[in-house]
């Protein structure tokens, strides 16, 4: 539905629905923190910005540009290749045996997640935060008004 909708707004709304289903899966896996964060970050912030931009661009409901055959063929080839790769990967994957006795149902809870992130994976976590900081500084630099330039 995300892909086949003609109206980009509908696509975005379906994508939000997809994120909800994803959160539902997280809850079924007893990873409540991940579910909530998924809703807050993706559905609550990123998709709002998507919607925002599309609403600005799409006020006039202009006709969608006609796509020529070359684009269609290229898209079909790329999509088919991705599908083949996914299918191959899926076939090759060995699913580890599930042992109910050793399974810890609390593994998705926020306490164990915090312990894992801040103890075992501290360095990657901090590196990711630095990466985000750099991206943020870059965004601010891009969005900053030049000196002497006035917008309103």
């Amino acid at each position: 539905m995300v892909v086949i909708s003609r109206n980009p707004i509908h696509s975005v709304l379906y994508l939000i629905l997809t994120f909800f289903s994803l959160s539902g899966h997280y809850i079924l896996l007893n990873a409540q923190f991940l579910a909530a964060v998924n809703i807050i970050v993706y559905a609550g912030a990123i998709m709002v910005l998507f919607l925002f931009v599309i609403m600005f661009l799409n006020i006039k409901q202009d006709q969608e540009e006609t796509k020529n055959n070359l684009t269609k063929i290229a898209a079909a080839v790329v999509g088919g290749t991705v599908f083949v790769i996914l299918f191959g990967a899926y076939r090759k994957t060995a699913i580890p045996a599930f042992n109910p006795d050793q399974f810890d149902s609390q593994i998705g809870m926020i306490e164990s997640l915090g312990n894992l992130l801040f103890r075992d994976y501290l360095l990657p976590f901090e590196l990711a935060s630095i990466l985000l900081l750099v991206a943020m500084v870059g965004a601010v630099m891009l969005g900053k008004r030049e000196i002497g330039e006035r917008h309103f």
Binding site: Q32, F33, A35, A36, V37, I39, I40, A43, G44, A45, V48, I110
Partner: peptide, 11 residues
């Protein structure tokens, strides 16, 4: 995750 839930719904 009570408070996160509220926060998500508000979002």
């Amino acid at each position: 995750i009570g408070i996160l839930y509220v926060f998500g719904v508000v979002a």
